[in-house]
Nucleic acid binder design. Structure first.
Lengths: 144, 144
DNA sequence: CTTGACCTTACCATGATGGGAACCTCTATC
DNA sequence: GATAGAGGTTCCCATCATGGTAAGGTCAAG
C-alpha cells in the first residue's frame, strides 16, 4: 500500500501522514526500492486511531502518549483514563471561557438597537476598557 | 509616551503593539528623531479597545472592522451588531463542538475502570472499527 | 515511448504570541 | 564627559496542525 492508498483507507491526508512520519508520531514507514513509503494494515489502524483521537480534540502530544499506551498490551487503564480526564478538564475550561465571551456578547448585542443610528453598547463596552457593562443575568462586583 | 509606557497604560505587550503596527491594525505610530514610536492618549484608547475585543475572542480581522466602525462616528449600529452576532454564532458552534468531544470522553472515561488492568473503553473507542495492532498470534481478534 | 497520475523532498503560509540577538538611544551617576 | 543599564529598534525563529506549491523521480496504461 502506498501513501495514497493509506490515505484513502485511513481518511488521513497524505500531507498529514508524512507529517506524522516526520515528527515521529508513527514509526517511519518502510520504503520501496524507489523510495515510496509502504503501509500495512497495522499502520492503517494507527492512522485511524490518530484521526479519531484528533476528532476528540487530543493534541499531538497527548496522542503520542495514547498511542504508546495503545501499543502496550500491559498498560494500566488508569493511565489512559488520566489522560482523558485531563483533556476533559481542559475542554471544560476552554468551553467555560468561550461561554463567558458568548454570554457577554449576547447581552451587549441584545442591548444594541442594530439600526442606522451610531449609538452602540457593543462599541461602548469595548471603548470603556475600564468599565465593564453589566454582564448578563447578574451584576458582578466591579473592581478596578 | 514611548512604547513601554503605552504598554503599561494599555495592558498590551510591546511585542503586540509593534505587531499591530506592522500589520496595519493601528495606524503607524509617529516617531521621534531617534526613531522611537510615540503614543498619545487616543492611541492608548485604541490599544485598550483591541485588548478588550481580543478578550471577547474577536479575531484580528474582526477587530479591524470593529475599529473602523469605532472610528466612524456615522456608523450604523447594525453593522457592529452583525459582526458581534456572527462572532457569537461562531463561538456557539465551537462550544458545541467541544461540548460534544467532552461529553463523549466523559462517557468513555466513566466506563473505564481506571485501574491496573489493560482493558479500556477509551482506547477501544479510538480503535473504532480498526482491529488492535495484532502482534503476531496470541491475540484473539476481537471484532469491532 | 509518451502521458498522466502519483510519489519524493523542501519551502512558504496560516494566527497571535513569545523569545532572543544585534545594535542604537536615553538617562542617571561618577 | 564617560559609562552603565534600561529600554528602544529591526530581524529572525518557534509555536501547532494543516494546506499549498514547485521541482523532480516513478509507475502503469495506451
Amino acid at each position: 500500500m502506498n501513501i495514497g492508498q493509506a490515505s484513502k483507507a485511513s481518511g488521513v491526508t497524505t500531507k498529514m501522514i508524512r507529517y506524522y512520519d516526520e515528527i515521529g508520531l508513527v514509526r517511519p514507514a518502510s520504503r520501496t526500492d524507489s523510495n515510496y513509503r509502504e503501509y500495512d494494515a497495522r499502520q492503517i489502524n494507527e492512522l485511524r486511531f490518530i484521526k479519531r483521537a484528533r476528532s476528540l480534540g487530543f493534541s499531538m502530544d497527548e496522542i503520542t502518549q495514547l498511542l504508546s499506551l495503545w501499543r502496550d498490551r500491559e498498560r494500566p487503564s488508569r493511565e489512559v483514563k488520566a489522560i482523558a480526564d485531563r483533556h476533559v478538564a481542559d475542554l471544560d475550561a476552554r468551553i467555560a471561557e468561550m461561554q463567558a465571551m458568548a454570554d457577554t456578547l449576547r447581552h451587549l448585542s441584545h442591548c444594541c438597537a442594530g439600526d442606522d443610528r451610531p449609538e452602540c453598547p457593543i462599541l461602548a463596552d469595548l471603548t470603556a476598557g475600564a468599565e465593564p457593562t453589566t454582564p448578563p443575568e447578574r451584576v458582578k462586583a466591579r473592581a478596578r
